[in-house]
Design a protein around this nucleic acid. Structure first.
Length: 842
DNA sequence: AGCACGCCGACT
DNA sequence: GTCGGCGTGCTC
């Protein structure tokens, strides 16, 4: 048999299956989805089997075909549907197959070759002369004799000069070399102790136990009470002994030890209060009815659930999932990374217990792998996680929920640059599953699709337009909090030069007096600290990238976000030697100082990049705030999402329009979403809430509509703008980024590439302007222009924007045009990056 | 991506 | 005259 293998080489030239012979010993074990080690161009690599065919069906010359070196997992990590999904991903997002496959699997399964050497056992005796000719340095041979197989890397570390000897020794067979794929983490093994088989005998022995071996007696007594194997760690902890005591009992034959597989459970030791389904409001019932009917019908159907903040979407999710489980189907819940807090996990674990696997980036590689295996081995039926959990290897999915559907974290910014929403809709087709996109502020793309305003001829994931479901009311009839918009220009004219308007100041003072809490949002992107000289205007920039360096207060180091370059912070300006060099803070620091000045003794928790880099710090800060250990929670975007504290009665937005005027067509949408989300943090419980929004452009529709909690009005305005400007959802975009070390070469290749693309579009009869008034089918190529970050890692960057609408297979056109640039001499080393449906235009 | 094979500069 | 620079080209 021949296995068709995708090898782990992230290059377009190797982006196709290679044929390998399945050794007789592995026949029946190697199947589509298996992970294998294969020889490839003089080394051993990891690869994924995407198909197994009879030997005669291979089109490769027999003499070229090598055998598979090893099989890496007993159970293939990939299911057939995931292989199919990977092909779809690689086509839709123009990425390599290996990148698509790897995106679906936990990092633990990215094994690398490890080379080991060991002394040949018989060689020295049989060929003493040859052995003598390769006099391995003193100590090296002795070391090898003692330690058995040794990692080549380790050997190089300890004997840096031994290279030539080792090579010669391998050549004549004195040393044997072995190459195997080694995973980043392995399946965790735990020692367990097994109770005595002869319980009566043990009991008798115990009765007559010598007094001096008291510890052994305790251990044996403990084990007699045990019903089954006891983990060694637990036994030691419970009896207060050490390993030697147990070992003595093992040696005497009373106990035996065994190694068993174990999971690293990130929630070990935590018990989750079992919760029962809550009674639903009429609105919730109506929505649930639709979803349940859809799950039962097992037809792939997407729903857009537009529910205002506090309308009880999560309870609907929980009951829909229950329906799935009752039907023997599995469910996936996606939550934005930032809101995947312990409270969120608790709601799912509380309802479904051990059937829940949790997948998020804060887990260690090993923990993630174990949670993933719970799914693969059918020990879990519900996956709750961030973006990549959409690839959970379930067998038959009934429901996929994407909560806070509008969140940009569902778009992956590295290759493959997929959007979890599109993947969900594709998987739904494969499984006959229902998709629920939930949000208080649905993305314009989803809303437009659900209301049939979309570019004609959807060539995306397809699956039909989502049906719009609405939950316009908060549970228990709680009102939306009133929003006051303060015109900061008037404040300034009125003589108030502080960053707080009189309204916000009064609000804060009032909460302090009443012992209630406030949330302050500083809506600011690119909130990192940077260094500037106040005398000459010098700013510290990365020598490899066109970007300012970020100042890290703790280590007093300047670091580049893009390439990792770091240097010590200067004490004087490197340009003019002035000492007026300043570290400009995040803005939140400034607000914090101002608060301390205005309200002496105020307790502030600041949440921004500086205070949340440490693991778990995010949760710790929120916990403190929840315990009312602070009066004000001050932060960036991250305070807007999913928080629910009963004593928060005031939400202030310090400067609402800082995100409004970014050169990005989504800036109004982002601003509206942020304001609406943050406003939803107030008055979620008995105490009524209030929101104060400070702005220099209070008349802007994004702010006006957010003030009135009027999503529909916002969408109307925004859609009109998008139509006029010819932006999504009235067209689709593909961003092509090109980079090279040499600028002239890059501009030349870039221009030619754009021209080729226009020619191709012209030949296909679709070339034309794309805006609100253009015809039903058109594709336009804008640029190339210098990227907003014009240089990164010593490479210049240019980009082209492809805009198209209607039934145009733009990715196919792009792939065909790009091929000669990638493979042939035409590209001349220019690197191409493709982002389909980009989110970051900047 | 690596590693090999292949043509032109600074060394024993 | 050789060692080695990294420029193309292939990997089942």
């Amino acid at each position: 048999m021949i296995a068709r293998v995708i090898v782990d080489v992230p290059s377009r030239q190797t982006d196709r299956p290679f044929d390998y012979e399945v050794p007789l010993a592995l026949e029946g074990w190697v199947e589509a989805g298996s992970r294998v080690g294969v020889p490839f161009g003089g080394r051993v690599l990891q690869g994924f089997v995407v198909g197994v065919i009879p030997s005669e069906a291979s089109e490769v010359d027999m003499s070229k075909i090598k055998p598979i070196a090893e099989l890496l997992d007993p159970l293939p990590p990939l299911r057939p549907d995931l292989i199919e999904l990977a092909s779809w991903l690689s086509v839709k997002y123009c990425c390599t197959m290996i990148a698509a496959l790897q995106a679906m699997l936990p990092a633990a399964l990215k094994g690398k070759a490890e080379r080991t050497v060991r002394l040949s056992e018989s060689f020295e005796e049989q060929e003493p002369e040859a052995a003598a000719a390769v006099l391995l340095p003193d100590g090296l041979r002795e070391w090898l004799r003692r330690s058995g197989p040794v990692k080549l890397d380790t050997l190089r570390e300890r004997f840096p000069d031994a290279g030539a000897y080792v090579k010669a020794a391998i050549r004549i067979g004195l040393l044997e070399e072995q190459v195997a794929i080694r995973d980043k983490v392995s399946i965790r093994k735990v020692q367990t102790v097994i109770p005595p088989v002869d319980r009566e005998g043990a009991a008798e022995a115990l009765a007559a136990w010598p007094a001096r071996a008291g510890k052994q007696r305790d251990v044996l007594a403990f084990m007699l009470d045990a019903e089954g194997p006891v983990p060694l760690q637990k036994l030691l902890a419970d009896t207060g002994t050490t390993g030697s005591t147990v070992k003595a009992l093992v040696d005497k034959g009373w106990l035996t030890m065994r190694e068993v597989e174990a999971s690293r459970d990130p929630y070990a030791g935590r018990t989750f209060q079992r919760t029962e389904p809550l009674p639903l409001t009429e609105g919730q019932q109506e929505v649930l009815k639709w979803i349940v009917a859809s799950i039962d019908a097992r037809e792939p159907k997407p729903y857009l659930l537009h529910g205002v903040t506090g309308s009880g979407k999560t309870e609907v999710y929980l009951q829909a999932i229950q329906r799935c489980l009752d039907q023997g189907l599995q469910a996936i819940v996606l939550v934005p990374e930032i809101s995947l807090t312990p409270q969120m996990v608790e709601r799912f674990k509380g309802r479904f217990g051990d059937a829940v696997a949790v997948l998020h980036s804060r887990l260690s590689t090993g923990e993630r792998y174990d949670e993933w295996r719970k799914i693969r081995e059918r020990r879990a039926q519900v996956a709750v996680g961030a973006r990549s959990a959409i690839f959970a290897p379930f067998e038959s999915i009934g429901l996929m929920i994407i909560d806070e559907e509008h969140e940009s974290s569902y778009k992956q910014e590295e290759s493959p640059k997929y959007h979890a929403r599109d993947v969900a809709i594709m998987r739904a087709k494969q499984h006959g599953a229902t998709v629920v996109l939930g949000s208080a502020t649905p993305s314009l793309e989803s809303f437009a699709a659900a209301t049939a305003v979309r570019p004609s001829g959807n060539n995306g994931a397809g699956g039909g337009a989502p049906l719009l479901l609405a939950m316009p009311d908060r549970v228990a009839g709680r009102p939306m909090p009133p929003v006051t918009v303060v015109d900061m220009r008037e404040e300034l004219q009125g003589g108030n030069r502080s960053m707080f308007s009189r309204t916000l100041y009064a609000g804060l003072a009032d909460r302090l007096e009443r012992g209630e809490q406030s949330v302050l949002l500083l809506n600011r992107r690119g909130y990192s600290t940077f260094v500037m000289c106040r005398s000459c205007g010098y700013t510290a920039a990365c020598p490899h990238c066109d970007i300012s360096l970020t100042y890290h207060q703790k280590t007093r180091v300047l670091r580049c976000h893009y390439c990792g370059h770091s240097e010590n912070a200067p004490s004087a300006c490197p340009s003019c030697e002035s000492e007026h060099i300043r570290f400009f803070g995040t803005g939140t620091q400034k607000v914090e100082e101002e608060l301390a000045k205005l309200f002496p003794g105020i307790r502030v928790i600041r949440m921004d990049v500086d205070t949340t880099t440490e693991k778990g710090s995010h949760e710790k800060l929120l916990k403190q705030f929840g315990e009312r250990k602070a009066d004000v929670l001050l932060g960036t975007q991250m305070v807007a999402k999913g928080l629910d504290f009963p004593y928060v009665t005031l939400v202030g937005v310090v400067a609402a329009d800082t995100s409004l005027h970014l050169p990005d067509f989504r800036s109004a949408e982002r601003t509206f979403q942020l304001l609406t989300q943050v406003a939803g943090r107030a008055g979620r419980h008995e105490l009524p809430g209030e929101v104060v929004v400070q702005s220099y452009a209070p008349e802007h529709y994004a702010i006006q509509t957010a003030q009135h909690h009027d999503y529909d009005a916002f969408v109307r305005e925004e859609l009109a703008h998008r139509r006029a400007m010819g932006y999504p959802p009235y067209c689709r975009l593909i961003l092509v980024t090109m980079s090279h070390e040499q600028l002239p070469l890059l501009t030349e290749v870039g221009d030619r590439f754009a021209q080729r693309l226009r020619d191709a579009a012209l030949a296909a009869g679709v070339y034309g302007r794309v805006d609100g008034t253009s015809g039903p089918r058109a594709l336009d190529v804008l640029g190339p222009v210098a990227s907003p970050i014009a240089r990164m890692k010593d490479r210049y960057r240019f980009q082209c924007m492809i805009k198209y609408r209607g039934n145009v297979d733009a990715t196919a056109l792009l792939r065909e045009t790009i091929r000669p640039f990638m493979e042939g001499s035409e590209g001349r080393g220019v690197q191409f990056g493709i982002d389909v449906d980009p989110h970051m235009i900047l």
